[in-house]
Amino acid sequence: MYGFLMRRLAATIPVLGMVALFVFLLLRMTPGDPAAVLAGDNGTPQQIAEIRETLGLNKPIPVQLGIWFSNLLQGDLGQSYFFKKDVTELILLRVEPTVALAITTLVITVLIAVPIGVIAAYRHGTWLDRCVMGFSVLGFSVPVFVVGYILIYLFAMQFKMFPVQGYKELADGFFPFIHRLILPSITLSVIYIALIARITRASVLEVLGEDYIRTAHAKGLPNRVVLLRHALRNAAVPIVTVIGIGVALLISGVVVTESVYNIPGLGRLTVDAVLGRDYPTIQAVILVFSGVYVLINFLIDLTYSFLDPRIRY
């Protein structure tokens, strides 16, 4: 097991290296000049050339890559062109809202999706099952921003239960913090609830047809025990896989949700950085995101071996 951990961690290094290289080259190939953006609408060609000079953008691309890589290896993500700050500092400032949003979304999703999926499987073919499946289709088809604005209109503007927008740090107290996170989290979780409820239903339904479920009934176990202890645990591997993929996809959902609810998180930072052609920040944010993907995959693999004794590394 320890050997497996080490091997898996070692395997992440080439992955992250490839991502870094790819992002760097991709940004240099897309049109748009950071110097022009920084100089503003009234910038003269001479000003632009000066800015290029100070940012080091006039050096040949392999040289730029070399500088960036060697800084990266020393843990230096560079200076933001746009915010005039260390990128590391910038990211640290924006991490809390995004992580908080992702975690509350995940909790809401799992707490709702898994139970309704299990119930739909257990009562498959009934109206209950059809309701869950119907909701699921709806959840897939309505875009995140539409859900967001509907929830704002209903719960923030009509019923005044939640604030319309904004974010409070955890340091300012737990209630204001969570109070402002609930609507955005629900907005984000709709599509994941739809997805994970469907997968849970399919997976549990398949397991319910297995021989050991018949054995469990033949033992005289109550239905609840058969369903939760025997069926759900066996159905867990595909469910966990999809939850993992969901968390990874969440990051793209975060970008939209943070804009709708005006939350100063990594999603907003990404949008701002892209609009400002802020190369160091874009590169750093994407590296951080891919680091998170790799970490999540690693955690999923670990969960497999915990859930199923047959999976050993």
Binding site: R214, G220, R233
Partner: peptide, 23 residues
Amino acid sequence: RDLRCTRMSMIFQEPMTALNPVM
């Protein structure tokens, strides 16, 4: 349910699949 496994029991064909693999 009360009678199963106390007064009457059943064993099946496929011992490979009749037991819960994760317990």
